[in-house]
């Protein structure tokens, strides 16, 4: 199984261009040629000025996300053989993010949102290593495990029309990570995260389009995490109401 395929790439060089433009290449492919291999071929053989992000080639680093025929995909996990019957494949930088150059998107807004929800294990009191491990049963781990597979590739942000409409929306990956740590039996940082989940740009800004879960290359299912976050937000609201009625602080 082999052949050649027309690859149309969106170009944008900030020093020279005021608007993006298209460039086409004829790329030879065999059964194991990925979109990332095709981009490497173009850069090595056809046009060395083409810019794109990549690193691991095995869907771990999350760097090579691009729009392939209008779908957010990892270049290394998408193969030209699946497009053998198409006239061409069209590569664009990830949707909903600013374009720095060619296929390179600015993922800073996504990283800022992820940082907002404090996605790390938090303990109310620091423990010395001598105190030993904090143990967790397999059932406790299963509650959050699938949500911990996120590689921050940003495909879910490119798939999310709510993030496209409102860049302040914390978005699929950030809200999934918040849920991942809230569900972790070792974590005690829920009260610090809930104000962000409850806020206007938190879980309630999600309208369950669900496409984020379709495009996730690690089967994380962000739509499930966010909508479980809505349940958690409701419970948190009731708890806060109860606390306020009793004259306490909300949290």
């Amino acid at each position: 199984m082999s052949g050649s395929l027309k690859v149309r790439v969106q170009r944008y060089r900030p020093e020279e261009d005021d608007a993006p433009w298209w460039q086409s290449f004829e790329v030879p492919w065999s059964e194991d040629t990925s979109v990332l291999d095709a981009l490497n071929h173009i850069k090595d053989v056809e046009d060395g000025s083409l810019s794109y992000r990549w690193s691991c080639r095995m869907a771990i680093c999350g760097s090579c996300g691009v729009m392939v025929n209008d779908e957010p995909r990892l270049g290394c996990k998408t193969f030209l053989r699946h497009y053998a019957d198409a006239d061409e494949i069209v590569l664009r930088p990830l949707e909903n993010l600013a374009v720095e150059r060619d296929l390179v998107s600015d993922i800073d807004p996504m990283l800022a949102h992820i940082e907002t929800v404090q996605p790390w294990l938090q303990r109310e009191q620091a423990e010395a290593p001598e105190a030993g491990e904090t143990l967790q049963t397999p059932v406790q781990m299963a509650r959050y495990e699938s949500f911990s597979h996120c590689i921050n590739c940003g495909l879910c942000y490119a798939a999310c029309p709510q993030f496209g409409r409102n860049p302040d929306f914390l978005g699929p990956a950030a809200l999934t990570l918040a849920q991942r740590y809230n569900l972790d039996s070792r974590d005690e940082g829920r009260e610090a995260r809930m104000p962000f989940l409850n806020g206007e740009d938190g879980v309630w800004a999600c309208t369950f389009v669900g496409y984020c879960s379709d495009v996730c290359p690690k089967d994380v299912d962000p739509a499930a995490a966010i909508n479980q976050g809505k349940v958690a937000s409701n419970v948190n609201y009731a708890v806060n109401l109860f606390r306020l009625l009793r004259g306490g602080d909300d949290a």
């Binding site: 020093e15 779908e71 909903n96 993010l97 374009v99 720095e100 409409r165 309208t207 389009v209 669900g210």
Partner: peptide, 23 residues
């Protein structure tokens, strides 16, 4: 010098993919 292209969501975004049309 940076000169990023700002993202723009056009009015017909929902027509572009079957998942959006189903939604």
């Amino acid at each position: 010098m940076r000169k990023p292209l700002p993202p723009r969501q056009d009015a017909l975004w929902w027509w572009r993919h079957p998942a959006y049309r189903r939604y």
